[in-house]
């Protein structure tokens, strides 16, 4: 363990490229304030994948890496929809997942919101509508905010969450 702490002290806090860091700083500040005001300091997100390629999930996982560290701002990915304020929905809404997605949404206590992420849920990714896909998601659930991209990168997701916070 000693080796690790040595490295830890030497490495310090890792930061972004300066220009990115500046804009991130602004986003972070605004998100933090907004989460504080509107969600009493903690915004709980339940991520649901309704048929993605897994890249959108990977980018959401990246939000927890030391560069972005979303939890600092009071945003948590929670294990159960019953703990959530927001459902973050990715993927093309497959026939097989539709009932489960609706069920998960029903389990979230009101007030609740849906943010869709990636081009898939809106059927703007290259996948085409067919028998196995029930998309776009807006035909089944009410989406408050959409974060476009295939996949949106972590900064875009943070910006998207900020826009959502401004909307409500």
């Amino acid at each position: 363990m000693i080796k690790f702490w040595n490295k830890r002290v030497k490495l310090g806090v890792i930061t972004e490229k300066p220009e990115l860091e500046e804009s991130l700083k602004k986003i972070r500040k605004e998100i933090k304030e907004s989460v504080k005001k509107k969600f009493a300091g903690s915004l709980a997100i339940r991520m649901v994948d309704s048929g993605s390629c897994n890249a959108c999930e990977a980018e959401c996982n990246a939000l927890s890496n030391p560069y972005f560290d979303l939890e600092r701002l009071g945003i948590y990915f929670v294990a159960s929809p019953r703990h959530a304020d927001v459902m973050l929905l990715s993927g093309v809404m497959t026939f097989n997942m539709t009932p489960h997605v609706k069920e998960a949404y029903a389990q979230i206590p009101a007030p609740k919101w849906i943010i869709s992420i990636g081009d898939c849920p809106m059927m703007q990714a290259p996948f085409e509508k067919n028998y196995a896909i029930n998309a776009p998601v807006t035909e089944h659930l009410e989406v408050t905010h959409h974060i476009a991209g295939c996949p949106p990168n972590p900064v875009e997701i943070m910006e998207g969450i900020l826009e959502f916070l401004r909307k409500i």
């Binding site: 994948d49 048929g51 993605s52 993927g91 093309v92 497959t94 026939f95 097989n96 997942m97 489960h100 996948f127 085409e128 067919n130 028998y131 196995a132 896909i133």
Partner: peptide, 11 residues
Amino acid sequence: HFYKNRGIEKM
């Protein structure tokens, strides 16, 4: 599995 089946083969 197969919850995510998107019918890619047919597509």
